[in-house]
Amino acid sequence: MKLRLDQIKKTLGNRLVLDGISLDVSQGEMICLIGASGSGKSTLLRCINLLEPLDDGAIWLDGHDIATPGLDPQPVRQKIGIVFQSYNLFPHMTALENVLLAPRRITKKSRADLMPHVGELFERFGLSQHMDQYPDQLSGGQQQRVAIVRALAMKPEIMLFDEITSALDPELVGEVLEVLKALKREGMTMILATHEMTFARDVGNRVCFLDRGRILEQGPPEQVFNTPKEPRTRDFLARVLNRG
């Protein structure tokens, strides 16, 4: 698996939200996107998943430009999972139904064929007792883990995470971050937008600082956090690290 973003541009309303983003992601890497609110982190992730069409630029996935205008986005989205800050579970379905919907419709496999894999995912993330509960019967941390399981059930090659711990009570953040660590150990390729600086420093392979729709600075976490080159990166880090 190899993902390569090439000069991505995106305008929303009349604002240039992504202003030429280029990024190479290799197999098994965990990339942390940091940056102020409004810097374009969510938009970038939505573009990679093709939920937003690009204005310009290309997204190469294993040698194919998946952002080619007019291309069917469905097969691509099956390879690239995304988890949102607000979980976005389907409230009228149980946890298990949430997870089974897409594999059943897309792979046309029966529930019995899918259960070994799906059951194992529930098991692995400590959700086995919650399969038959509805989202509103679950805690935020449990809901977010179900959302992760739902994305993983499609066996994606890359996972995108958009501030998945921001809506959680502080005591529930840990259990969700543990899931990310486990995925990293298994070699999942991940891009995550995050405000969890400690996590980005300890677990991430690379940190990208987004500023006004550009990657202003990137590098290994120690370098970006300890010796940032750009003044704007320093300002941003000073602001967020002092707050916490």
Binding site: L51, Q78, N88, F90, A102, I106
Partner: peptide, 16 residues
């Protein structure tokens, strides 16, 4: 709209 986004992001078709 986030419900539709979530469904599409899993690879489901528009009509599904």
């Amino acid at each position: 709209a986030s419900q539709r986004s979530a469904a599409l992001s899993l690879g489901l078709s528009s009509s599904d």
